[in-house]
C-alpha cells in the first residue's frame, strides 16, 4: 500500500510545482487573456491541493466561487477593455528589478523563519476528517456573526459595483 502513498506524495509535489508554474505564467505572460487563463489553471490546481488536504468542501467552493464566478468577471472585464486586434503592448513597468530584489530578500527571511520554528503538529488534528456538516454547524453557531457581516459586505459591494459601472443611459 505504501506505493499508493508514495504516488500520492509525488502527486502533491507535482501539483505544487504545477501551480507555481501557472502562477509564474500569470505574472510573466504579455497577453492578458493568457495570464487570466493561467490564473484559472492555478486556482484549479490549488483546489486539487485542498482535495489532497482532504478539505473537499473548500475545494468545491474554491472551484465554484473562484473559477466559476471571479474568473468570469475578470474575463468579462478583459473582453470589454481590450479591443479585438489584441496588439500586446509592454506589460511591465520599470520597477521590475528593484521589486524582484526586495521580494527575494523578503522570501529568504521568511523561509529561514519557517524552517527553524518547530511547528506543533498534534496527532489528533491529523486524523480528524472535517466533514461538510462540521463546517455547516461551525458557520451557523460559532461564526454566525462574521457570516452575517460577510453578507452585508457582499450586498454593499454589489450595489457599489453596479453604481460605478453603470453607464449614464444615453438620452
Amino acid at each position: 500500500m505504501e506505493i499508493l502513498t508514495l504516488a500520492a506524495k509525488i502527486g502533491a509535489y507535482a501539483l505544487m510545482t504545477g501551480v507555481l508554474l501557472f502562477a509564474l505564467g500569470v505574472v510573466a505572460l504579455r497577453n492578458l487573456f493568457h495570464s487570466a487563463l493561467c490564473l484559472a489553471a492555478a486556482l484549479i490546481g490549488i483546489a486539487g491541493l485542498y482535495l489532497f488536504f482532504r478539505a473537499d468542501f473548500l475545494a468545491a467552493v474554491q472551484i465554484l466561487l473562484y473559477v466559476g464566478a471571479v474568473m468570469t468577471v475578470i474575463i468579462f472585464a478583459i473582453m470589454l477593455t481590450e479591443h479585438l486586434s489584441g496588439k500586446t503592448t509592454i506589460q511591465h513597468n520599470r520597477q521590475s528589478l528593484p521589486a524582484f530584489l526586495g521580494i527575494a530578500a523578503l522570501v529568504t527571511v521568511i523561509a529561514k523563519v519557517i524552517l527553524q520554528t518547530p511547528w506543533p503538529v498534534t496527532q489528533k488534528a491529523l486524523g480528524a476528517h472535517t466533514s461538510v456538516e462540521g463546517i455547516g454547524t461551525a458557520l451557523m453557531t460559532v461564526y454566525v456573526f462574521p457570516f452575517e457581516v460577510i453578507s452585508v459586505v457582499l450586498i454593499a459591494a454589489l450595489i457599489g459595483a453596479v453604481i460605478i459601472a453603470k453607464r449614464e443611459n444615453p438620452s
Binding site: 492578458l32 506589460q91 519557517i114
Partner: peptide, 19 residues
Amino acid sequence: LLLFAIGLYGTLTRRNIIG
C-alpha cells in the same frame, strides 16, 4: 510563501490594472 511572492511581484510590476 513562493506563491505569495509571485503574486506580490506581479502586483508591483504589471502596468495593466486587471493584471
